[in-house]
Design a protein around this nucleic acid. Structure first.
Lengths: 330, 330
DNA sequence: ACTAATTGTGCAAACGATTGCAGAAACGAT
DNA sequence: ATCGTTTCTGCAATCGTTTGCACAATTAGT
């Protein structure tokens, strides 16, 4: 591969001048600039990223740490991040942690020795507080989707508002006994969805059906199980608010298993609006998260931090959710 | 961050000795080795990857180029690759091309200037023949899922065999008029699925229902459309073989839209066995691809090429598919 | 005991880009 | 014509590692 000296020779200048012409921060005569650019073009010169990195410059790479590529919520956000990163000349390194803190630490060590320019984490949760120390070590960090405190720049959904709207909609459809099947309260996002649900209930003068609120449920199999149990105990809600689309899928399956219909007998509200949610039977009424947009915002913010430095106070950016009405709620 | 000189001083040896003790290729006295290791341990020394890369060594990074993270087939394979890479101390850089050749080229250029150790591509298809030249430029390359010629090490599914088994199974269930809704014949994988379908039909003495074989269909919306059209033209097959699970989902939706039942009126066979395929209604009978395993094999092969060199002739590794019987075929 | 072979070590030169420094060239002001 | 600016350029040092080379120290061979 062609290096800066060969370009310099071809352009009839020194290597320093080539470097200056390319980075553009230090002025170079118009004449030299043109000759350099021509040589760069002709020889298809690309600066060696290692040499640049070694010299202490930026390497234009960001690390993206997520719990699981197979979970359907992250890939959409990845796309937003990738596209934005690409537009700014950055490359994305993807890391998958399986919610495993050891793996996460391995990646952080491993990537820092490559002098990654910054990180986007979607793995923040209680127990991972050491992530909060990274900025003080000079590593730009953004949290996305999952939040942990307010000391880090974060892009999240208005989970409370989304759940509130969803619940209000169900109430407006005349549904009274609304069960909640929720994720782990450890994650603020599920806590907020719970709070939104409660607020809508209270505003309507309704009361929380305590025996039909379940937390700590994750994925379709779990959703299926818990709904099965609920129905076997002869709890018969008018509607179930599942705080993720996969849970909703499992729940629908459980309802049908005992011969009831969705939404005629029991309505089901999801949360996420995953790609397939419009394709299942019945098409799922759900709360859409702007995943792509979240990725874009998170990435923009990170690149800004990398290039301009972390000057302002950390901001928690809250994007609003949108109710998507299909056919699973009566 | 601590560098090799500080370690050398702490261990009372020269930097060269530290380097030799760590890489292990050139012998060092037992005494020195122990002191170096102790210092490395105590100071938590990690060699600077840029300096190593600049010096011409390996950087322990592989590029993974896929058409789309949101397509549900790739994430499972990504996990296999990531896990295997991690076990060998490699990091994975993920690139998403949107099937866009410009984006693909951008990534290849961009990553090569970082002197990536090797590539795994899932984007091989006619028009991308320039990928075949990378090995001659000294870049180790493996193709996964999608194949293009035989000059590159490749890991693919036995698509012909999988489709053959699926079709045979439908025939064995007494289904006679089996429509095929297939992807683009440009991709060998869809051509092979078509061939497997034909072989099973021929063996059974059946004939291809020419008016019910459609190629070039991609995704659920496309599947929904084409099935709708088929049914409107009063074609009423006994069964539909969709060569991907998303197509199958769209097809099921179309069948139900006109008031028919799956599988009582029309059976539907999928292909892929994506995560959600067990959760939809009816649970999908389909052909399972060992995505995770494919990722593992592709990654192992690439790392072997990187570390041992490309000595043997390129191999095309064909993994077998497995029929998963659920409820969408009668 | 003297050479020959072996083993281990440190020096210094790469790798390729960036940048402080000093000096050359060009220009304007007196 | 002299001096002072300004504008541009090249030299050389630097980043942290690896590795060829030469030399020192140890062991083996006669």
């Amino acid at each position: 591969m062609v290096n800066i000296k060969e370009v310099a020779k071809a352009a009839g200048v020194s290597a320093s001048t080539v470097s200056r012409a390319l980075t553009g921060k230090i002025p170079v005569s118009e004449d030299a600039r043109i000759r350099v650019m021509a040589a760069v073009e002709k020889m298809n010169y690309q600066p060696n990223a290692f040499a640049q990195g070694l010299k202490g410059g930026r390497i234009q790479t960001i690390g993206l740490v997520i719990p699981n590529v197979r979970s359907l919520v992250f890939p959409a956000a990845i796309r937003g991040i990738e596209d934005t990163a690409g537009q700014h000349g950055y490359t994305v390194v993807l890391c998958n942690t399986d919610e495993n803190i050891e793996k996460e630490r391995f990646y952080i060590e491993n990537l820092r020795r490559r002098l990654i320019d910054g990180f986007i984490f979607s793995t923040a949760r209680p127990g991972h507080e050491y992530l909060l120390d990274l900025p003080s070590e000079g590593v730009p960090v953004v949290f996305m989707i999952r939040q942990l405190g307010k000391s880090i720049n974060t892009v999240v959904l208005d989970n409370e508002g989304g759940a509130y709207e969803a619940t209000r909609y169900m109430l407006s459809r005349g549904l009274k006994k609304i069960a909640l099947i929720n994720g782990s309260l450890e994650l603020p996002l599920y806590r907020h969805r719970y709070e939104g649900y409660l607020r809508a209930l209270q505003e309507a003068g309704a009361v929380e059906p305590a025996d039909m609120v379940v937390h700590g449920i994750s994925g379709w199999d779990d959703g299926y199980q818990v709904m099965k149990e609920l129905l076997e105990k002869r709890h018969r809600p008018d509607a179930v608010f599942a705080t993720s689309d996969p849970k909703a899928m499992g729940i629908i399956r459980a309802i049908r298993d005992i011969g009831l219909r969705v939404p005629q007998d029991i309505s089901v509200m999801g949360f996420d609006n995953l790609d397939f949610s419009s394709q299942i039977d019945p098409p799922l009424t759900t709360v859409a998260q702007p995943f792509y947009e979240m990725g874009v915002r998170a990435c923009r913010r990170l690149i800004q931090m990398i290039e301009k430095g972390q000057n302002s106070r950390p901001k928690v950016e809250v994007l609003s959710a949108q109710l998507v009405i299909r056919k699973s709620v009566i």
